[in-house]
Amino acid sequence: MLSGPPPPDQPVPEVVRRLAAGRPTHPMWRNELGGLTFEITVGAGRWFVKWAPPDSGLRLDREAERLRWAVRYALVPPVLDEGADESGSWLLTDGLPGEPAVVDRWKADPATGAAAIGAGLRRLHDRLPVADCPFGWRVEDRLARVRRSAAAGRLDPAWWHPDHAALGVARALARLADVPAVDRLVVCQGDPCAPNTLITPDGRFAGHVDLGALGVADRWADLAVATWSLHWNYGPDWEGVLLAAYGVEPDADRIAYYRLLWDLE
């Protein structure tokens, strides 16, 4: 199963119907693990509910925990409800203003979109307090998971990006063993791909969504993936715009390292 918009006739789980309480409900997204996101119209505003089947491995409780911590410092969705039962788990959040950076408007204006993504990451990294953050996204833990996957035979280069597929498992692991020194430790977004940045109608950063992996790490763990995601959302020419808006020069070695790590996870 690939991620993407679900069909218009996507069945609505019972718990989503209950949370909507008769309000208009629209399917928005289906991820590769079977998780669904719905938009609920609430007067002039909107709520969003994520739902995950019980066997998906998705931990919406972890995202709820991170959102409740981060909302004190950053523009992230407030949690309204969460729970789980035998039919699955759910997370209900209030909507933020703005639209994802990958709607048609910003695809047609990638300079504005890339700049908003960069400015948003800088704001997040500057405002979330590392010393008070109870969540980690450190490279050592991520690399340990990759090595366990390799030992279990679950790494398949056929699924990797063309930049990495020719390496094979052994060479890729060898490259990852050479961990770059930390440039700046921050609280990272954890899934900084372009769709997870919201932009206001006048082109400014509005907030972040999908923070289930939020945690302390080198800032390049976010920046490497954020710039990479521009390639398949806007094209290959916008990395410099994002990094300039963030306020940092490109770091080719750290970018290469963290993209490879992301690909193998």
Rank of each mutant, 00 (worst) to 15 (best):
R219C: 04
G207H: 02
F205W: 12
A217M: 01
D218M: 00
V169D: 02
G168R: 09
W160I: 08
V179S: 05
G235M: 09
R171L: 14
R171I: 04
G240P: 02
A221T: 01
V225Q: 00
E239F: 00
G212D: 07
R175H: 11
P180A: 10
S229T: 12
T197P: 08
L230H: 03
V179H: 12
A244S: 13
P236C: 03
R175C: 07
A224V: 12
G247R: 05
G207M: 07
I255P: 01
C193H: 14
R219P: 01
A177L: 10
Q189L: 11
R184H: 11
A221P: 00
L211P: 01
R204M: 04
T227F: 00
A170R: 14
W238Q: 11
D222G: 08
A206T: 03
D183R: 13
A177D: 15
L260N: 00
P250E: 04
V248D: 11
R254T: 06
L167Q: 09
Y234A: 02
A245K: 02
Y246T: 09
W238P: 00
L214C: 15
V186F: 10
V182C: 15
A245E: 07
Q189H: 15
W220Q: 10
L173H: 02
P180F: 02
D178M: 06
R184Q: 14
D191T: 06
L167I: 12
A181T: 11
G168A: 07
A252D: 14
V182R: 09
D163K: 13
R175F: 07
V209S: 13
F205K: 04
A252T: 14
D163I: 04
N196L: 10
